[in-house]
């Protein structure tokens, strides 16, 4: 189990001609991931969701807050122990084309981490081969068909499965999937999403799913928690289906509106709203709602006072929360 409390990450500013101010990429973010649970972070490019994933995977430091893994506070652990603990968190990145060395076969790519583990456990070569076949079968690939291939001989979906198989070699308890399907053909995405769900259910591996596509988050865990992030802050969170079916924050509603409407099968929700204004750069003012400049429902108050998260199980940070019907409605035949 991972518990994150009031996490904060500030990237320092730079001076000079092209300098910029310090940027708070993550601001007061708290959540926990139960064993085998699913948590998804939704937001636009640049909202800070990737930084959260990288912090959990140990690739980024944080400036304030606590990350507690299995009862141990990461910041208080000696380096060695922290590294051992963090090995159980594996990051799956967006681009499977870059994550694999093009000059090495799948067998070579997967046996490297297995050799390290075999050494620690005193296991032999036969164990490595056995485990290699096992992880490939777990991700739905035929080991004999892929083992001697190079990454360029596989499709995007197969490559991402290899990346997941490699992450599984070290028996992780958490997978951080950062836009793990956005480089894959849409026709093959569901296969990878269902694989992640399967790993949760069979091996109690928790999944932190980071994406800009709300629809794909459902397939990893409609039973999980969904966090909507805007400019480093949580603006709405709750059970995934609850947030999708009863969105209260206008930003969540914009994200849901962005899901394409399938002509001939659906019609747009009556309140569908797509902001044409771009996500502005720079730090939002401390005493205003960060989304106000793009919000179609903004009132004077929104520019004067920052809304706090309210609600119980389903929380949202908006001065004027209101459920709106933005999701496409299926046409009845």
């Amino acid at each position: 189990m991972i518990e994150v409390r009031h996490l904060e990450k500030t990237f320092p500013g730079t001076r000079g001609l092209l300098g910029h101010d310090a940027i708070k990429a993550v601001n007061d973010v708290s959540f926990h991931i139960p064993d085998g649970g699913a948590v998804s972070f939704i937001g636009e490019s640049g909202c800070g969701k990737t930084t959260i994933g990288r912090i959990l995977a140990g690739l980024e430091t944080y400036t304030a807050g606590e990350v507690v893994m299995d009862g141990q506070n990461l910041a208080q652990l000696p380096r060695r122990q922290r590294a051992v603990l963090l090995r159980r968190v594996q990051l799956i990145q967006q681009d499977p084309y870059q994550a694999l060395n093009p000059a090495r076969t799948i067998e070579q790519a997967l046996t490297d981490p297995l050799k390290v583990i075999a050494k620690e456990r005193g296991a032999d070569k036969a164990w490595i081969m056995h485990r290699l076949h096992e992880v490939l079968e777990l991700v739905g690939l035929d080991p004999d068909a892929v083992i001697y291939k190079y990454p360029h001989m596989l499709s995007g979906g197969q490559r991402q499965r290899i990346v997941i198989a490699r992450a599984l070699t070290v028996d992780p308890s958490v997978l951080v999937a950062d836009e793990a399907v956005s480089m894959i053909d849409v026709s093959l995405r569901l296969g990878v999403l269902k694989l992640l769900r399967d790993l949760r259910e069979r091996f109690k591996i928790s999944v932190l799913f980071i994406t800009h596509d709300v629809a794909s988050a459902r397939y990893v865990g409609d039973d999980g928690q969904m966090f909507v992030i805007y400019k480093g802050r949580i603006v709405e969170h709750g059970l995934t289906d609850e947030v999708i079916l009863h969105p209260q924050h206008p930003y969540t509603q914009a994200l849901l509106s962005a899901v394409p409407v399938l002509k001939g099968l659906e019609e747009p929700g009556p309140d569908r709203y797509i902001p044409l204004k771009e996500f502005g750069h720079g730090q939002p003012p401390e005493h205003a709602c960060a989304f106000a400049p793009r919000c179609p429902y903004a009132q004077p108050l929104c520019g004067q006072e920052k809304p706090e998260l309210v609600g119980t199980a389903h929380q949202y940070a908006c001065h004027y929360p209101k459920e709106r019907h933005v999701v496409a409605v299926p046409l009845s035949e």
Partner: peptide, 24 residues
């Protein structure tokens, strides 16, 4: 038919959507 079924959907039954089998 396979392409349409493979679209991740925002509402409705999760099992309705299925990835296309095989490789391009």
């Amino acid at each position: 038919r396979g392409l349409i079924r493979a679209i991740p959907r925002i509402s409705g039954n999760l099992d309705q959507a299925v990835a296309l089998a095989g490789s391009p």
